[in-house]
């Protein structure tokens, strides 16, 4: 189905997530790269040897969660915008999620926006904690949102209402 719709199945998504114990320890990257394409900037960008693509750049990146600091450099460098950062260490009820967002207007810190799943359907309101768009992110702003823990595996996008 994924190849017909662009929507990965729950099973595919779960395979890309680190174990919940790792998420609860602190920020970590989730690399949703499901299909081999010739591409390796995530590996090149990572200073912590936490992403491995290898000699054949068509290979699917493998994350070494134990090395990942959740720094989000890979997130801004991935041409497919396929990476997000999740952090379950801040609260028992919520998780912090960093996603790329290349649309205007950018949300404001403190604002509530619509949280969307991988189909683009509304799931819950989320609070915007941070909006980062330094020059090094090269026009791919990174938005940190606070999300109800129940939606950890569903949340993937936001909609900012004008």
């Amino acid at each position: 189905m994924f190849e017909k719709t662009g929507i990965p199945s729950a099973e595919m998504i779960m395979k890309k997530f680190p174990p919940i114990e790792r998420i609860n320890k602190g920020a970590v990257a989730v690399i949703e790269c499901y299909k081999e394409i010739p591409c390796n900037p995530c590996e090149t960008a990572c200073k912590f040897d936490a992403i491995n693509v290898g000699e054949d750049i068509n290979s699917i990146p493998k994350a070494k969660f134990e090395n990942c600091t959740g720094c989000a450099i890979c997130l801004s460098k991935c041409p497919g915008l396929a990476i997000m950062i999740v952090d379950g260490s801040k609260s028992k009820d919520t998780v912090e999620v960093k996603i790329p967002y290349e649309f205007l207007p950018l949300p404001k810190e403190g604002q509530f926006v619509k949280g969307l799943n991988r189909e683009g359907s509304y799931i819950t309101d989320v609070k915007v904690l941070k909006v980062l768009a330094p020059k090094s992110f090269d026009r791919t702003p990174v938005i940190t949102i606070e999300v109800d823990r129940r939606f950890l595996y569903e949340i993937r996008n936001i909609k900012v209402e004008v």
Binding site: K4, T5, C33, K35, G80, L81, A82, N157
Partner: peptide, 24 residues
């Protein structure tokens, strides 16, 4: 075509904006 021809990372980022992709 019965399948998406482009890179699926591109397809996913459009799909999660709510745009349906109608193959076939």
């Amino acid at each position: 075509a019965p399948k998406i021809g482009g890179y699926l990372v591109h397809a996913s980022k459009i799909r999660r904006m709510g745009v349906p992709i109608l193959t076939s």
